[in-house]
């Protein structure tokens, strides 16, 4: 296959856009794991929930920007309730049951979505302001994808600012390292846990809303993203934001070029990378804890 420069360019951009989306999902997964030790297997279900609720808001009001606010908020609220009423009571029983609970939750959310919106794929419109395409280095590229990329980067910037420059971020980072000590110092850690869990699911919901027009809205959407987000979190290191950023773009590009160059093996390659990283360095490329 002849690869000209513009194809490489477009594929590379597609990879970046997908990388940003995966990052929005994986960052919440990673921070929640780092803090609470819970691998939330239902995390991508909140991504799906955000996408479907965003779709309904768009259908009722016709306003994309409103759906961009309400979709993530609904996902965050659902996440907060989940943490408070499902995960917290099970915490004392150990990690095994927390994991099991999130599996059950993923099943329930999947069925609720099928129930509420049907099993058919849904099509969303791109808002009028973001329609059309732009010229980048001689190739045309859809404006909406560019918007997703820039918007995702902005969210990443805000997240990094909050996490590394504010006292709230300091508490969160401290709680990742040693939650018991932070609570002994007088911080209401259960509340911080709840807020972080809600933030994580909200980010996943946000990714769902903006991914809708590109990746489609269908009941299998959670599973596809869940797998990639797990790979990102494992490769980047559970609990590491920097790792999540690097790994997201790595997996995004790999998916993008893999589909183009070796469609037969791209799926196998992704899991091979995950398995190899887990075997050699289980804490991930940027993870600190073993």
């Amino acid at each position: 296959m002849a690869l000209d420069l513009s194809t490489i360019m477009i594929t590379c951009l597609h990879g970046l856009v997908y990388g940003v989306l995966i990052f929005l999902v994986a960052s919440g997964l990673s921070i929640v794991f780092g803090m609470m030790g819970v691998l939330n297997l239902a995390h991508a279900s909140f991504y799906m929930l955000g996408a479907y609720i965003g779709y309904s808001v768009l259908g009722i009001t016709g306003n994309f920007w409103l759906s961009l606010v309400l979709g993530p908020l609904a996902a965050a609220a659902a996440g907060s309730l989940t943490q408070r009423f499902l995960l917290r009571p099970v915490h004392a029983a150990g990690h095994l049951f927390e994991l099991l609970l999130t599996i059950g939750l993923a099943l329930v959310i999947l069925e609720v979505v099928k129930w509420g919106w049907g099993t058919e794929p849904l099509a969303t419109k791109i808002p009028a302001a973001l329609e059309g395409s732009v010229q980048i280095l001689g190739s045309t590229y859809p404006l909406y994808r560019l918007f997703v990329f820039v918007f995702g980067l902005a969210v990443l910037g805000v997240l990094a600012l909050v996490l590394f420059k504010t006292s709230l971020g300091m508490i969160v980072r401290a709680a990742i390292t040693d939650p018991v000590m932070v609570s002994a110092l007088g911080t209401d850690t259960p509340m911080v846990f709840n807020a972080v869990f809600a933030l994580g699911t909200g980010l996943a919901g946000l990714a769902g809303v903006i991914a809708g027009p590109i990746l489609g809205i269908y009941p299998g959407m959670a599973q596809v993203v869940a797998i990639d987000a797990f790979v990102v979190v494992v490769v980047g290191g559970l609990g590491s934001l920097l790792g999540a950023v690097v790994a997201s773009f790595l997996i995004g590009e790999l998916q993008s070029f893999g589909v183009l160059l070796f469609p037969e093996f791209s799926l196998i390659l992704i899991f091979l990378i995950m398995a190899v990283v887990l075997c050699i360095k289980p804490q991930g490329l940027f993870g600190e804890k073993g």
């Binding site: 099970v90 099943l107 069925e111 129930w115």
Partner: peptide
């Protein structure tokens, strides 16, 4: 139709 919903909900209740 939604039999998996009931199984899933039952499972969550069992874990809780």
């Amino acid at each position: 139709q939604a039999w998996e919903f009931y199984i899933g909900a039952f499972f969550v209740a069992m874990v809780l």
